[in-house]
């Protein structure tokens, strides 16, 4: 990797510069979907997510290949489950936050109940039975 021509695939490009091949493929796949139609927009999202997912998975696998201490290797092996737990915590916290700041209108509810009572009484007075 340090410029020696022995590890090179091509005389003009270094090994890591060949990352442009998957990157350009992914870019073409993302761009090729016509985002004016809903189906194209959906395919674009699918390719975007697949690209990010495979990039992160590749980084994880590369980290597993590296020369690491016992503790570091254990942490890296546990990272997918950690990500799952963090996703669960994030989802739960979003639900909690939304419940906390859910807009409630007690005054309007009271007014609506009063209207219902008035209307029920009126209808009952004119001989129409309204079940509560």
């Amino acid at each position: 990797m340090n410029g020696g021509s022995a590890g090179r695939i091509s005389p003009h490009l270094k090994q890591e510069q060949f990352l442009f091949v998957p990157y350009v493929t992914w870019k073409v796949l993302v761009r090729s979907s016509d985002c004016t139609s809903p189906q194209g927009a959906r395919m674009r999202r699918v390719w975007t997510w697949l690209g990010w997912g495979s990039a992160i998975a590749a980084l994880w696998v590369a980290a597993l290949q590296a020369d690491l201490s016992e503790a570091q290797r254990g942490v890296i092996q546990a990272l997918p489950i950690w990500a799952l737990v963090v996703f669960g915590c994030y989802s739960l916290s979003v639900v909690g936050y939304e419940i906390m700041f859910f807009p409630a209108c007690p005054d309007e509810a009271e007014k609506l109940q009063k209207d219902i009572r008035v209307a029920t009484a009126y209808l009952n007075k004119h001989g129409i039975s309204v079940s509560k």
Partner: peptide
């Protein structure tokens, strides 16, 4: 309840 969920997570 929302605060409890948030703190728990």
């Amino acid at each position: 309840a929302g605060l409890g969920l948030l703190l728990f997570s």
